[in-house]
């Protein structure tokens, strides 16, 4: 019988192995496991091209419960970001696949990819940041773009994108 209480750790170790095998791919996402706790991770993602987030490096915190992967991981922006679907103060993310459309078919890497897609395609109709949502809904794209750009420059320019060696070291734990 499978010890399901250990399933989360087992699955995350598997995901880690996959990351180690494919560490040269997906250059816009860098997942970093916590060396003491397999349920805790950090991720760095690179702001997508042709968005106000371009050039920024954003830090995400990831916490998996023991019900992972049946239940979604809790993912939040640590780096401040101006985006309709990210809470400006708490960094909470409103994304259906992190809530009721989550399924174990996703994983940490895929969830990060979905967050990148969210940065490229904000959904102004379910805003956590009403100011950002209103700018887009009101058709004032210039205002939204310049605010988002300003916060990217102000907050997301401090982290260096990890080199290949950095990544290898982070995943080696």
């Amino acid at each position: 019988m499978v010890a399901h209480s250990l399933a989360a750790a087992k699955r995350l170790r598997k995901e880690l192995q996959n990351l180690q095998r494919h560490k040269d791919e997906d250059d816009d996402i860098c997942l970093i496991p916590d060396s003491d706790n397999v349920l805790k991770w950090a991720a760095l993602i690179r702001g997508p091209k042709d968005t106000p987030y371009e050039g920024g490096v954003f830090h995400l915190s990831i916490v998996c419960g023991t019900e992972y992967p049946l239940a979604p991981p809790t993912m939040t922006f640590v780096t401040k970001v101006f985006h309709p679907n990210v809470h400006f103060r708490t960094g909470d993310i409103c994304l259906d696949i992190l809530k009721k459309e989550w399924s174990p078919a996703w994983g940490l890497q895929a969830a990060c990819r979905a967050i990148l897609a969210l940065l490229s395609a904000p959904d102004a109709d379910s805003p956590l940041n009403c100011d950002a949502g209103n700018m887009i809904r009101g058709g004032d794209d210039i205002a939204f773009q310049s605010m988002a750009r300003m916060y990217t420059v102000e907050n997301a320019n401090f982290l260096r994108w990890p080199t290949k060696e950095d990544r290898e070291e982070a995943l080696a734990s």
Partner: peptide, 20 residues
């Protein structure tokens, strides 16, 4: 088209159950 890593523990769970 499911990812092997994603389905593995679930598949094992069913096989274990049926085998028992």
């Amino acid at each position: 088209g499911y990812d092997e890593t994603a389905i593995e523990i679930f598949h094992e769970s069913l096989v274990d159950l049926i085998t028992s």
